[in-house]
């Protein structure tokens, strides 16, 4: 991903800032500027997520693309945040220990490195809570 494309959502990624529709009460992380339920009636504001959540499902990635192969094997999960929104993230833990239902909390980590540009991307990953 280009540095500028990453940078645009950097504050969201660093601090787990998503959005909230005050019309229907839904929370969005990744952030959405348009509520799919309320559409034009939806009023969207920023929301900083508490960060704690639960593993819905997971895998151990053993074969990855260029930007991530230095991390293999790594645990990847879909996590449901306590506010009710789901996201995809790596979970830093013993890969044999991850399981469905596991409670997790956020940490600030290196996400990926782009060999070509030399850019290093940082953001939120999760660890067992």
């Amino acid at each position: 991903m280009s540095v500028s494309r990453f940078w645009r959502k950097q504050q969201n990624r660093y601090n787990l800032i998503g959005t909230h529709c005050t019309t229907c009460g839904r929370y969005f992380y990744p952030p959405r500027s348009f509520c799919p339920d309320c559409r034009r009636e939806g009023k969207i504001v920023d929301h900083k997520f508490k960060g704690v959540g639960t593993v819905v499902t997971y895998t151990i990635v053993r074969s990855a693309g260029d930007q991530f192969k230095f991390l293999t094997p790594y645990a990847l999960a879909i996590i449901e945040l306590d506010e009710g929104s789901k996201l995809t993230s790596q979970v830093i833990c013993d890969i044999d220990k991850i399981q469905i239902g596991m409670r997790v909390k956020p940490v600030f980590r290196k996400l990926a490195e782009d060999g070509k540009s030399g850019a290093i991307f940082y953001g939120t990953k999760f660890v067992p809570a």
Binding site: M1, V61, L71, T88, L111
Partner: peptide, 12 residues
């Protein structure tokens, strides 16, 4: 932006 950056692959 939200799956790729987490290191997803299609098999994953």
């Amino acid at each position: 932006e939200w799956e790729g950056i987490a290191g997803i692959t299609f098999p994953g």
